[in-house]
């Protein structure tokens, strides 16, 4: 099932930027793109563990700050020649608030 919880106001996340969400299993990066959509992904690049939340957000993608791998925010998949993926979690904006699916986050622990 899906259980949305309110984690912040959209304005708390910089436009074309990200903030993190601390969970017992590590940080989740919550991105806000140019068109005010939000995406939640594990804040850890599969390459060398770089914090994706500190990368440059462009279109619906982010470039890892350590070695410039690029990830599609929708699928979590690495773009171009690089191979790998990060887990994604359902997130949405409703009435100016950012909601995230807490059951899927909990599932992160099980998986």
């Amino acid at each position: 099932m899906t259980r949305w919880i309110d984690i912040a106001a959209l304005e708390d996340i910089p436009l074309r930027g990200a903030r993190t969400l601390r969970t017992p299993e590590g940080c989740v990066a919550v991105f806000r793109t140019h068109d005010d959509r939000v995406f939640a992904l594990d804040d850890r690049c599969p390459h060398k563990g770089g914090p994706l939340s500190d990368g440059i957000v462009h279109g619906h993608a982010v470039t890892c700050p350590l070695h410039a791998w690029v990830f599609d925010l929708e699928t979590g998949r690495a773009q171009g020649a690089d191979e790998g993926a990060v887990a994604t979690y359902p997130a949405q904006v409703m009435a100016g608030r950012v909601l995230i699916d807490v059951d899927r986050l909990a599932g992160k622990r099980v998986a």
Partner: peptide
């Protein structure tokens, strides 16, 4: 504030 996480989700909140 921007240097800190948005929130910390504890076990209880997640369950």
């Amino acid at each position: 504030r921007r240097f800190h996480p948005l929130a910390t989700l504890m076990q209880e909140a997640a369950e």
